[in-house]
């Protein structure tokens, strides 16, 4: 009989019985509603084991790729381990390879994990200052393209962790990070689909990673990357991204400055408004958002109202330190 490992316990799940019902029979309740694979309330993630294809029908590709499944539709064929959600991500040691300044507020932190580190461009990790103090940062690097992992850290007002990274962290130091997590990344399969990416502040790092990853995976459809900053000195990676855009006719990179006069080559105004004025109809587009929480919330709404499907809008909450 298949066994379900959940929250450190092992439960028998009789053949032909769903994970949801199998666990419920042991008094373990997973939140659920329709029990027929539609509402997706019973979404859980498999940490190990074989996932029946029916258990992932209708899920976003990014969720499928991360082994998410619907408990009501999952009839286990063999033993399966379900992540209970509350468990903290495993921690890893990583040596600082370099700390470099990207602009007045943002530094690049390059790390060499002590063990193989699996991630996708656009995901994020948790960086620990000490056992109780940590913050999440988006990954700005791309697997297969970059040998080290890279984080872009903006100095937050009174930010303890970002202040520490900006002032005290040095090359050679060993830090603790979590495994990577998050659902905002490029999934191959629709190489011609147009992509819109809007980021503010150091959210650019993560989005530029997604663009490089998409190109590496052979994306041929239009890719439009907008970076917004209030001040002109908040813009960065101008040359590198302009070079990528120049080398790929399908890629457009637009810098936007909202509260100061925009320098030559940059647009004047809010990145979201400029992006939507240039692409007012987002029907069929895939959208990635990263940066300031208010920007992400309004961009998600505006992109949806402009025609993007809810399941095609990707953003991870970005927690400033």
């Amino acid at each position: 009989m298949p066994k379900v490992l959940y929250g450190g316990q092992s439960y028998d799940c009789p053949p032909g019985v769903s994970l949801l019902d199998g666990l419920a029979a042991h008094g373990v309740q997973i939140p659920s509603s329709c029990r027929s694979g539609v509402c997706q309330n019973c979404l859980v993630r498999a940490a190990s084991g074989e996932i029946p294809p029916a258990a992932q029908a209708g899920l976003k590709p990014a969720l499928r790729a991360r082994n998410y499944l619907l408990a009501c539709r999952c009839v286990p064929k063999g033993d399966i381990e379900i992540a209970s959600g509350e468990e903290p991500l495993p921690r890893i040691r990583a040596e600082v390879a370099a700390v470099g300044r990207l602009n007045a507020q943002i530094v690049s932190l390059r790390l060499r994990p002590a063990q193989p580190f699996e991630y996708r461009a656009g995901q994020y990790l948790r960086l620990f200052m000490d056992d109780r103090t940590s913050r999440c940062y988006s990954l700005a690097s791309v697997p297969h393209l970059d040998s080290e992992i890279e984080l872009h850290v903006k100095r937050a007002p009174q930010g303890r962790v970002s202040g520490w990274i900006h002032e005290a962290v040095r090359a050679g130091q060993v830090l603790t990070i979590s495994e990577a997590t998050g659902e905002s990344f490029y999934v191959p399969g629709q190489p011609g689909q147009p992509l819109l990416l809007i980021g503010t502040g150091c959210g650019l790092g993560s989005l530029a990673g997604i663009v490089r990853d998409a190109l590496h995976q052979g994306h041929t459809g239009p890719i439009r990357l907008y970076h917004g900053s209030r001040r002109a000195d908040g813009l960065y990676r101008t040359e590198e991204l302009s070079r990528i855009a120049a080398g790929h006719p399908n890629v457009r990179f637009v810098q936007c400055v909202s509260r100061e006069t925009a320098p030559a080559g940059a647009e004047q105004g809010n990145a979201l408004q400029i992006a939507l004025s240039e692409t007012p109809d987002l029907t069929g587009w895939r959208v990635f958002l990263c940066g300031d929480q208010d920007m992400v919330a309004s961009a998600r709404r505006e992109a949806f109202l402009a025609g993007a499907s809810m399941s095609a809008i990707h953003a991870d909450p970005f927690m400033p330190s």
Binding site: S32, C34, R35, S36, V38, C39, N41, F304, M310
Partner: peptide, 25 residues
Amino acid sequence: DGIDMERQAAKQKAFLTLAFGGPNQ
């Protein structure tokens, strides 16, 4: 206003499933 749109979309799906006479609890 101010709601988590992804979670809300899941609730809308559950509501539509109900209204369409589909399986629901």
